[in-house]
Amino acid sequence: MNYMCRFQRLIFVFGGLFFLFGCSEPEPIRIGFIADFEGRASELGISGRNAVQLAVDEVNAAGGINGRKIELLVRDDMSTKEGGANAARSLVKAQVRAIIGPIRSVVAGGVVPIINEAEIVTVSPTVLAASLVGKDDHFFRMASSSRKDAEHYARRLYAEGYNKIAVASDANNELFTGPWVETFRAEFEKNGGTVTASIPFDAGNSKGLSATVAALLKAQTDAVLVLANGIDTAQIAQQIKKTNEHMQLLATSWSASENLVVLGGRAAEGMLLGENYDRNDTSAQYVRFRDAFTGLFGVLPSQSSITSYDAAQILFAAMRNTDGAADLKSKLLGIRGLKGLQQEIGFDGFGDGDRALTLVVVKDGEFIRK
Rank of each mutant, 00 (worst) to 15 (best):
V96A: 13
A61N: 05
V181S: 09
L72G: 03
L91F: 00
T80A: 03
D278I: 02
I368T: 13
G204S: 13
P28G: 04
N172C: 01
F18C: 14
M142E: 09
V111G: 04
N191C: 09
T294Q: 15
I11G: 08
K241I: 12
I199M: 07
Y3H: 14
V226L: 01
V195D: 04
D278S: 06
Y277L: 04
G295T: 12
M142W: 04
G340D: 04
A318N: 10
D348Q: 04
S255N: 07
D352R: 02
G22R: 02
V133G: 11
V127E: 08
D77C: 00
R355E: 09
I114A: 10
S47K: 13
V96Q: 14
A318Q: 06
F347S: 11
L260R: 02
D76Q: 12
K190Y: 12
A267P: 08
R288S: 15
R97P: 00
N2C: 05
M78F: 11
G204K: 13
D352Y: 04
D364K: 11
M1W: 13
A317G: 04
G63D: 01
I120E: 07
L132N: 02
G84C: 06
D170F: 05
L91R: 06
S124M: 05
G208Y: 07
Q239N: 04
G64Y: 06
F18N: 10
F201R: 13
G110Y: 09
S206Q: 15
E43Q: 13
L328D: 10
S24L: 14
Y3M: 13
P179I: 11
A325M: 09
T177H: 01
D76R: 10
N244Q: 15
G32I: 12
I34E: 02
G63S: 01
T358L: 00
E38S: 15
A168M: 05
E38H: 15
I65S: 06
L17D: 07
A267D: 00
G337D: 15
G353H: 02
V92L: 13
L296H: 10
G349W: 07
I240C: 10
T358Q: 12
F139H: 06
S302L: 12
D291P: 00
D232W: 08
L333M: 05
G84Q: 06
G204M: 11
S210H: 06
E27T: 12
A311M: 04
V360F: 09
V361F: 04
R6M: 14
N280H: 10
V107G: 03
Q235K: 12
D36S: 11
F350K: 03
L72M: 09
D137N: 15
G193L: 02
A197L: 10
G109I: 01
L175R: 15
G22Q: 05
T307W: 15
G192V: 03
G134F: 06
F297G: 08
D36M: 04
A41N: 12
T358W: 01
L333Y: 07
A154S: 08
S283G: 13
G351C: 04
G351W: 05
A61C: 00
L73P: 02
E71H: 02
I29P: 05
